[in-house]
Deep mutational scan, measured.
Amino acid sequence: QDAKLCERHREKLHYYCEDDGKLLCVMCRESREHRPHTAVLMEK
């Protein structure tokens, strides 16, 4: 099964943002929008 990719950055989605309920890639996780949020690394 292929991992889902971030629509914005075309990177694999490794994080779940608990504040927004969205899946994030590393680039999104470090963005100004999500940096202050609680995001957890998803298990494989």
Rank of each mutant, 00 (worst) to 15 (best):
Met42Ile: 12
Glu33Pro: 03
Arg32Asn: 13
Arg29Gly: 04
Gln1Gly: 11
Ala3Met: 15
Lys22Gln: 12
Ala39Val: 14
Asp20Thr: 10
Arg32Val: 13
Leu13Thr: 12
Cys28His: 01
Arg8Thr: 13
Asp2Trp: 02
Arg29Val: 10
Ala39His: 11
Cys28Leu: 00
Ala3Val: 00
Leu24Asn: 03
Cys6Phe: 01
Lys12Pro: 07
Asp19Glu: 11
Val26Thr: 13
Leu5Cys: 05
His14Arg: 11
His34Thr: 02
Glu30Ser: 09
Ala39Tyr: 04
Gln1Ser: 11
Thr38Trp: 00
Met42Tyr: 07
Leu41Asp: 11
Arg10Asp: 10
Glu11Thr: 03
Glu33Trp: 01
Leu5Asn: 04
Ala39Gly: 04
Leu41Ile: 15
Glu18Lys: 13
Leu24Ala: 07
Lys4Gly: 12
Glu18Gln: 09
Glu11Val: 02
Thr38His: 13
Gly21Phe: 03
Tyr15Asn: 01
Lys12Ala: 10
Glu33Arg: 04
Glu18Val: 07
Met42Pro: 06
Glu7Val: 04
Glu7Pro: 13
Leu24Tyr: 03
Leu13Asn: 14
Leu41Trp: 07
Glu43Lys: 09
His37Gly: 04
Glu43Thr: 06
Thr38Ala: 11
Glu11Asn: 05
Cys17Asp: 04
Glu43Asp: 11
Cys25His: 01
Leu5Pro: 03
Cys25Ala: 01
Met27Gln: 14
Gln1Phe: 08
Glu30Ile: 07
Ser31Trp: 02
Arg35Ala: 13
Cys25Phe: 00
Cys17Leu: 01
Thr38Lys: 13
Cys17Gln: 05
Asp19Met: 09
Glu7Arg: 06
His37Met: 00
Cys6Lys: 00
Glu11Phe: 06
Lys44Ala: 15
Leu41Arg: 11
Cys17Pro: 05
Glu33Tyr: 04
Ala39Cys: 13
Gln1Lys: 15
Cys28Lys: 02
His9Asp: 02
Arg35Pro: 05
Lys44Ile: 02
Ser31Met: 07
His9Cys: 01
Arg8Cys: 06
Tyr16Arg: 12
Glu18Arg: 09
His37Gln: 05
Cys17Arg: 04
Ala39Pro: 06
Gly21Cys: 06
Leu13Val: 13
Glu43Ala: 07
Pro36Trp: 04
Lys22Val: 07
Arg10Lys: 12
Cys6Ala: 00
Met42Ala: 11
Met27Phe: 12
Ser31Tyr: 15
Lys44Gln: 14
Leu5Ser: 04
Gln1Trp: 07
Arg10Ser: 13
Glu30Thr: 07
Leu23Asn: 05
Arg8Ser: 12
Ser31Ala: 10
Gln1Val: 11
Arg32Trp: 09
Arg10Phe: 10
Cys17Ala: 08
Arg10His: 11
Arg8Gly: 08
Cys6Trp: 00
Met27Val: 13
Lys4Glu: 12
Pro36Thr: 13
Met42Asn: 15
His34Cys: 01
Ser31Leu: 07
Asp2Pro: 12
Val26Asn: 09
Ala3Pro: 15
Lys44Trp: 03
Pro36Leu: 08
Tyr16Thr: 03
His34Ile: 01
His34Ser: 04
Lys22Ser: 08
Ala3Cys: 14
Asp19Thr: 14
Asp19Pro: 03
Glu33Cys: 00
Glu30Asp: 11
Leu13Arg: 12
Glu33Met: 03
His37Glu: 09
Ala39Asp: 11
Arg29Tyr: 03
His9Trp: 00
His9Gly: 02
Gln1Glu: 12
Ala3Glu: 15
Glu18Trp: 02
Glu43Trp: 01
Gln1Ala: 13
Arg32Met: 12
Lys44Arg: 12
Glu33Thr: 07
Asp19Ala: 11
Cys17His: 06
Ala3Leu: 15
Lys22Tyr: 01
Thr38Cys: 08
Asp20Met: 01
Met27His: 15
Cys6Tyr: 06
Asp19Phe: 11
Met27Arg: 15
Leu5Gly: 04
Glu7Gly: 09
Asp2His: 10
Leu5Gln: 04
Met42Asp: 11
Met27Pro: 02
Glu43Ser: 09
Tyr16Trp: 06
Lys22Cys: 08
Leu13Met: 11
Asp2Ala: 13
Ala39Leu: 07
Glu7Gln: 08
Val26Met: 06
Lys44Ser: 13
Pro36Phe: 06
Lys4Ser: 11
Cys28Arg: 00
Ala3Gln: 15
Leu23Lys: 09
His37Pro: 04
Leu13Ser: 07
His37Leu: 01
Cys28Gln: 03
Arg29Phe: 04
His34Met: 05
Lys4Thr: 07
Arg32Leu: 13
Lys4Ile: 01
Cys25Asp: 03
Gln1Ile: 03
His9Tyr: 00
Glu30Trp: 06
Asp19Cys: 03
Arg32Cys: 01
Pro36Glu: 15
Gly21His: 05
Arg8Phe: 15
Glu30Ala: 06
His34Gly: 03
His9Ser: 02
Leu13Glu: 15
Pro36His: 11
Arg10Ala: 13
Lys44Thr: 11
Leu5Phe: 02
Leu41Pro: 12
Val26Gly: 13
Val26Leu: 09
Leu23Ala: 10
Cys17Val: 02
Arg29Pro: 05
Cys17Ser: 05
Lys4Met: 11
Arg32Asp: 15
Cys6Leu: 01
Cys25Arg: 00
Asp2Tyr: 06
Lys22Leu: 09
Asp2Val: 13
Ala3Arg: 15
Glu7Asp: 09
Pro36Val: 08
Ser31Ile: 06
Glu7Ser: 05
His34Glu: 07
Arg8Leu: 15
Arg29Asn: 03
His14Pro: 15
Glu18His: 10
Arg8Ala: 14
Glu33Gly: 03
Lys22Gly: 04
Gly21Ser: 08
Ala39Thr: 14
Gly21Asp: 04
His14Gln: 15
Thr38Val: 07
Lys4Trp: 07
Arg10Thr: 05
His34Leu: 05
Glu30Leu: 02
Ser31Val: 03
Asp19His: 06
Ala39Lys: 10
His14Val: 14
